[in-house]
Nucleic acid binder design. Sequence first.
DNA 1: AATGATATTGATAACCATTTCCATTTATAT
DNA 2: ATATAAATGGAAATGGTTATCAATATCATT
Lengths: 149, 149
Amino acid sequence: MPGGPPWWHGKLRGWGYRMTIPRQVILDLLNRSSKHLSAEDIYLAVHRTYPGIGLTTVYRTLDLLEQMRLINKFDFGDGRSRYELSQGPQWRHHHHLVCTKCGRIIDYTDFVTEEVKLLDKIEEALTKKYNFKINTHQLHFYGLCEKCR
Amino acid sequence: MPGGPPWWHGKLRGWGYRMTIPRQVILDLLNRSSKHLSAEDIYLAVHRTYPGIGLTTVYRTLDLLEQMRLINKFDFGDGRSRYELSQGPQWRHHHHLVCTKCGRIIDYTDFVTEEVKLLDKIEEALTKKYNFKINTHQLHFYGLCEKCR
DNA sequence: AATGATATTGATAACCATTTCCATTTATAT
DNA sequence: ATATAAATGGAAATGGTTATCAATATCATT
């Protein structure tokens, strides 16, 4: 992991957690990797270089990072949760197209400006109306991808 | 179940399925009931009057109805799927506010007109761009409800 | 740099929602 | 009424996730 201290280093400590090897490795993977990794994906990837890191720790770390809102947890209907970094230098607001046949997921960033503008407005109104503190939102489109339609 | 033949009667037959007691009972419950029932909720409710109907059949029926797109399946992060009728006389387009602490779910219908307008536009564009046949969408806001915040 | 208090880990076992299996029952066309 | 395939339900299996707990690692303090 070259190139100076990762941007998330201070965060864990800020929340009173310790910076451990498993946490560094998992965060580094999430930071480098593509999208929507499952706990098993992460376990296997990490296991290649750090065979000592167990699946339990992967789950625990993901829970931790989700609570800190460093990552988002998704359910695309394939029976396992999937995780994505929710911030960082290369992060962009996006949503998901989910193929209900083959499970393929397409990230799209089209219209997010308009979308986010409307969603922000809705968020604000809902917060007031229902006295609800909104932290995140998820928008998924479900259908059939090119190959499956 | 008084008041003439339910609106969904023809649908099952149209798909080549048989109209059985369990299917009638489950559909009737979904039609009368409030929202976001889990498979167990449905099993228990149905079980009171029809003890013969098994949990397996509930799951199977829900799968069937989902494939027919008579119901929508949701995951709100509490470890079980939840189901709602997706049409019918009293149905209204709505989305969900999910409390991540207590699991409470609020249905809201505010802004859906604007929202649906934008989403339709996005849907159309995404369909073209990714050659993706979009069937449904889900929008959830996550946060803390009045009591939990 | 060594110590100690305590947070964290990893292996195993438990959990629990959902599925699979399969023998029995039911719906419906004839 | 009968035949035939669809549908059912109970038990067992599946599989992602969580709980348990002894061993280990982190880090503030010395």
